[in-house]
């Protein structure tokens, strides 16, 4: 029995000692939770490690849980934060964390040249490398959609698809419409979408595939989904919605980086934020399949996409959208269920 007690005691003490040792190395480490796809974010974080010598400990999200696993972890860890930085793939989650008191302000020197509309005025989050919400359109179609209102145009009945608005960037898009049009008009739009037999897919990726396969003519997706299919040689093209005079413009969703309140490695966290907000990082994220649109002037956009200054962007306040998003989720859930 004594042996059993000793073994049990040792098995509890060893991890404790190992943990104590690791605490001594904390100053050389930064912990980051990442919602941006790992395939794109990991090379950037490795570059940071190479440049600064600071070890990056990352947790990446998965497509299966709609990139919300790390958000749940951040919220659950609120009272004893383990992360220093959160790299969100859109700014709404950053706003939600701000509202839940999980982030703290940090005004990076590299954020100065990023347009104001892509960052929180108090410095709770800063946007960089954006995606646009664009139409992916099958090239076999003679006509092209031009506006989000084409979802309710009878001529496109049964020919268009959109990702489940309960999750991800489609929620943001619908929340943006609520802030721009008001509840009545947006609800009318949603009901008419149903009448127009718009298919609800599980994700933007699936929507893009359905259009690329020719099952549907168009879908609103993130620009990286569209660029990815173009690079795969699929017969699709990109259309920026609502670019004409008097139209609402295209929704732009930058990545957002936040410093966690009570971050165990605050200094290293700030260094990582500076790095992520640099033009060099934006250049990295503009290349290859990632295809993100840089927000700094003078950084080349991906060849398939327009420069941010040449897109008529939606005039929205991300804070308002985040607020609206929480408010409209039950409405959207009901809309999906019926």
């Amino acid at each position: 029995m004594k042996k059993f007690t000793v073994i049990l005691a040792i098995s509890l003490i060893i991890p404790f000692l190992l943990n104590s040792c690791s605490k001594r190395n904390r100053e050389k480490t930064v912990v980051v939770y990442v919602s941006e796809d790992r395939v794109f974010s990991e090379p950037v974080l490795k570059e940071f490690e190479k440049e600064t010598g600071i070890k990056v400990k990352a947790i990446y999200d998965t497509e299966e849980n709609k990139s919300t696993g790390v958000m749940n972890r951040l919220i659950a860890e609120k009272n004893n934060p383990q992360a220093d930085v959160y790299w969100a793939n859109e700014p709404i989650r950053a706003e939600v964390l701000k509202q839940k008191g999980i982030s703290q302000p940090y005004l990076s020197k590299n954020a100065r040249t990023i347009p104001d509309k892509f960052k929180d005025k108090d410095g709770y989050w800063t946007g960089f490398s954006a995606r646009a919400r664009v139409f992916i359109v099958n090239k076999n179609s003679k006509e092209k959609p031009e506006s989000i209102l084409d979802y309710i145009n009878p001529k496109w009945k049964g020919k268009c698809v959109i990702a489940n608005p309960l999750f991800g960037t489609t929620t943001t898009e619908i929340a943006a419409l609520f802030t721009l049009w008001g509840k009545e008009k947006t609800m009318d739009f949603l009901e008419k979408m149903k009448e127009n037999k718009v298919l609800i897919s599980t994700s933007n990726g699936e929507s893009a595939d359905l259009v690329a396969q020719g099952d549907y003519t168009f879908s609103l997706v993130d620009s990286d989904d569209a660029v990815n299919r173009i690079k795969q040689g699929k017969g699709v093209e990109i259309v920026y919605p609502d670019q004409k005079e008097g139209e609402i413009g295209t929704l732009i969703l930058p990545n957002a980086v936040i410093l966690i309140k009570g971050a165990p490695h605050k200094k290293e966290g700030e260094k990582l934020i500076d790095f992520l907000l640099s033009p060099e990082t934006e250049q990295m994220l503009a290349k290859e399949d990632c295809a993100q649109i840089p927000l700094h002037k003078g950084v080349n956009p991906p060849s398939q996409l327009k420069e941010i200054s040449k897109i008529k962007t939606m005039n929205i306040d991300y804070f308002e959208i985040a607020k609206k998003m929480i408010e409209i989720q039950p409405v959207l859930k009901k809309w999906i269920e019926n």
Partner: peptide, 14 residues
Amino acid sequence: DTLSVRLLNYMANG
């Protein structure tokens, strides 16, 4: 991470 997490990580655009 483990292989199952890594696999699901890379299933997004890998």
